[in-house]
Amino acid sequence: MGTSDVRLDPVLNKELWKRGIKGIPYRIRVRISRKRNDEKDAKEKLFSYVQAVNVASPKGLETTVVEADA
């Protein structure tokens, strides 16, 4: 995504660890989006935000690029 600042959604963290340390899922569908950094002392003006996406089965899914309408 071209940013060195990557932030994880707390829901993603819960999704990864919900089955415990021995039950980590092999595949999980995530959405990565670039967002504007509104902090006052930010080094970069953009950051990447990673969040979990609910799907029935992540098996067989391919990468899709979605362009945002601005």
Rank of each mutant, 00 (worst) to 15 (best):
P25S: 06
D9R: 00
Y49V: 05
V50Q: 02
G60F: 00
E15Q: 07
P58S: 06
P10E: 01
D41M: 07
T3F: 03
P58F: 05
V55P: 05
T3V: 09
D9G: 01
L61T: 10
A68P: 13
G60M: 02
V50K: 00
L61D: 11
V11I: 13
N37G: 00
L46F: 14
S57V: 07
K18T: 12
I28L: 08
K14N: 15
R19C: 05
E62G: 09
S48Q: 01
W17C: 11
G20F: 01
R19K: 08
I32C: 01
N54P: 11
D38Q: 12
V65G: 00
I24E: 13
L16D: 03
R34A: 08
R29F: 10
I21S: 13
L16Q: 06
R36V: 14
T63C: 11
N54S: 12
L61Q: 14
N13Y: 13
R27P: 04
S33A: 13
V55G: 13
L8A: 05
V53K: 11
P10I: 11
D38G: 09
K45H: 10
K22S: 09
K14F: 12
E67R: 15
A52Y: 05
R19T: 08
E39V: 03
V66M: 07
G2A: 05
K35L: 12
L12A: 02
I32T: 05
D41P: 03
R7W: 11
Y26K: 15
I28C: 08
G20I: 03
A52F: 08
K18N: 04
A42L: 01
V66T: 14
K45I: 06
I21E: 13
P10T: 06
E39Y: 02
R34T: 12
E44S: 09
R36E: 09
L12R: 00
E39M: 13
I21F: 03
A70K: 13
I28T: 04
K43C: 14
S4Q: 09
K59R: 10
V65D: 01
E15K: 10
P10M: 06
L61M: 15
L61C: 09
T3M: 07
R27S: 15
L16C: 03
T64Q: 15
Y26T: 14
E39N: 07
V6K: 02
I21G: 06
K14C: 08
R36G: 10
V11S: 10
N54H: 14
K45E: 15
V55H: 11
V66R: 12
K14S: 10
L16H: 04
T3K: 01
R29T: 14
V30D: 04
R36I: 09
W17E: 00
A70Q: 15
D69Y: 13
D69M: 10
K14Y: 11
Y49F: 10
T63H: 04
T3E: 03
L8C: 04
T63A: 02
I24F: 12
G20T: 01
I24Y: 10
V6N: 03
K35R: 10
K18C: 06
V50G: 02
N13M: 01
D69Q: 07
E15W: 10
R31M: 05
S57Q: 02
I28P: 03
